[in-house]
Design a protein around this nucleic acid. Structure first.
Lengths: 226, 226
DNA sequence: GCAAGACCTTTTGTATACATAAATTGTGTA
DNA sequence: TACACAATTTATGTATACAAAAGGTCTTGC
């Protein structure tokens, strides 16, 4: 694996998993020492992160981990709604009903995956991710998929803002099941509407629980690893 | 201005304006000699172009100007429809009616801008661009605007595929006027529908005239400047 | 005591040299 | 003659040295 890719992957996961908090300054020399590579691959990694929106160039000098604020949440979900509603419509028109019916069956029982044994909710999020993947495959649109992929990077980062709430996750699974069912039935209008409802519920839940989390994480610009 | 920015801007306009055709290999040494800078800023420029989708890394080795095919056109317009329809809806809800009424007045008379004096249609496309800008401002969504900006890069590139057809441009102006009017009236549903109609007309016109153009441009991978 | 300017430090931008990997070409053998 | 393997060549990946710019600090003058 190339050093620039390793650096990129390391920084990316550090940012997504909140080990590097918003506002953290990403100095080239510091990172090159910490990751054990020269500045050249570090610069390439930072450029890629900036293009993705996970970091952004500080006015003229320096790169910092980009902010996630409550205002951003509204805007993020507005874009998400535009893309995912259309994706759901197209999947309903083009997808294989059997695939989505199978996903529906799994999703209605997804509550069972929410055991206290797995605090990271690995299996739960894997199943939800499978629905996303199936929708992407059914849509079969390179550009739309790319836009969704770019968006999901930020959504994973946002997920950490919400408290782990099994009740909400169970509801969310039911909403996902409704989407899968509408797609399986080939009903584009219902698929879109179910997506709208799901996203609205998710956003309101996040806004309700995220305020204190943000206040905790969103400290003034600091330097180095937390 | 930094050398990497100059290189990026030069390559970007070369690609958008078809001086570098799809499939052209972008060699680092060749470009560094042609543009008179070292490989380092060239690499940075190529990374940025790849992130934008204007170029893409050849399997493992080399970077080439990305392709534009008829299949891509369908997919590109599908994403465009998702983003612009939603943007039009939001602009109708949030925009200043006076701004869009003024744009409407200009757009209904846009046919007058299509003189034979200006074969590049500068004033025409500037006015259409003003509508885009006004919609972006009215929507006020950073993420949605960014997604639209990334998309428009490819649309400018695609524009060259269609023949210059004053009749179609006049029709397109009327369609834009209809969108502006719906936004001015605060009617989100009509704004979205008018956008859908406009994009469908544009796509069908492009597909009708682009086949021979593509056949002309889409030669097998070549090297160097055309 | 405050402000302005110069210098010094720190960090980024660029060039270049070197290492490494991939593609192509040439040669040998079947 | 065709295929395979190896060597050469060419391009990319990485490191490092140097240059330039931005920010901070210290000093000096008012």
């Amino acid at each position: 694996m190339r050093a620039s890719e390793r650096a990129y992957a390391a920084l990316r996961s550090d940012i997504i998993e909140w080990r590097l908090t918003p506002g953290t300054v990403l100095g080239e020399v510091e990172l090159s020492e910490r990751l054990g590579v020269s500045r050249t691959p570090i610069r390439e990694a930072l450029a890629k992160l900036s293009a993705e929106g996970l970091a952004k160039p500080q006015s003229g000098r320096g790169v910092v981990v980009s902010e996630i604020s409550l205002d951003h949440l509204d805007e993020l979900f507005e874009l998400r709604s535009a893309l995912e509603c259309r994706a759901a419509e197209l999947a309903a028109q083009r997808g294989d009903p059997a695939v989505f019916r199978a996903l529906y069956e799994q999703l209605v029982n997804a509550g069972e995956l929410l055991t206290s044994e797995d605090p990271t909710r690995y299996d739960y999020y894997r199943l939800v991710g499978e629905l996303d993947t199936a929708v992407d495959a059914a849509v079969g649109n390179h550009y739309l998929n790319l836009a969704l992929k770019n968006l999901r990077v930020h959504l994973v980062r946002v997920r950490r803002l919400g408290k782990d709430n099994p009740t909400r996750l169970r509801d969310a699974a039911r909403e996902h099941a409704a989407i899968a069912l509408a797609i399986a039935n080939g009903n584009a209008a219902v698929a879109s509407a179910a997506t709208t409802v799901h996203l609205d519920n998710s956003l309101r839940h996040l806004l309700g629980t995220a305020a204190q989390e943000l206040a905790h994480h969103h400290v003034s610009p600091e330097k180095g690893t937390p």
